[in-house]
Amino acid sequence: MAKARVKVPKSVKKGEVFQVKTLISHKMETGLRKNKKTGKKIPRKIINNFVCTYDGKEVFSSDWHPAVSANPYLAFYVKATKSGPMNFKWTDDDGKVTDKSVNISVSG
């Protein structure tokens, strides 16, 4: 189910600070809810870690906790250094990793 979307500008100038938008489809089951029929707790299943790497470096990372909504949207800013891939990694509680990569083209 997990499906990720990433949006970056088509091209950026060197040294420019640009916005990166990400959205991933995920239930983000908190582990606090109960199944209404059986009364049993629904086990927690959330994305607990997000990492973005660019130009060989980690430029943004965050740990997520159960209060994050379903289908989490995250936007952050990165300074353009050179053209190349930007990698995104969402890690699930069960260790499942969703990867996404976009190309950043830097002019000047």
């Binding site: 499906k3 979307r5 949006k7 938008k21 959205l23 379903a70 949207y73 936007a75």
Partner: peptide, 16 residues
Amino acid sequence: AIQDDDFENPAFLWVD
């Protein structure tokens, strides 16, 4: 604001 931005609007995951 969430609706105004087609990217931010999570419904578009379903539209996809």
